[in-house]
Amino acid sequence: MDNNKMNEDVFMAGFGGQGILLVGNLLAYAAIEAGKNASFFPAYGPEKRGGAAMCSVIVADQEIGSPVVGRPSNVLLLNQDAMAKYYPRVRPGGLCLYNSSLIDASGHQRSDICSLAIPANQIATEVGNVKLANMVMLGALLARNPLVQLESVKQALDIIIPERNKRFIPANLQALDRGFSFATA
């Protein structure tokens, strides 16, 4: 395998309604529009809202094998349950961004990975809507690992956001930027 070729995986988890699947979808679509291969694999409970929600996204230059990842390298965790369950599974040397507005990380310490607290709900509320926490988290991830350009993600928003929610696109863009600059700082 050519080591210069990209093969990145991202795992994200939270509860239904936090927009986990939307963000995963957005990232994968942006990667495809940028000419890469990508897979988006969602998993969720039978209930429409409130259950656990998670997804895996793979972005690669070559053909993608397993869409399932056992030890993910890039992880976004949006609530306490997700932290408890998935923080230990982050691949050694990997990156974990967690939503510190909802997660108490005091019981979770690992020195073999890079952990970063993002007060996503707080930033999202400042932008105008707590529901934008998902975009804050994605923006932050892209600052730390540019597996897709922030600009590509912004362009993809227009396709991924359903018609009825198009009016929220400016706020989503702002949330992406805020997350990006928070993690850059």
């Binding site: 979808n25 679509y29 495809i32 990508a38 897979s39 988006f40 694999f41 969602p42 869409p67 399932v68």
Partner: peptide
Amino acid sequence: AMIGQMKEA
């Protein structure tokens, strides 16, 4: 359900 629900190009 995996290939039914996942998205790819």
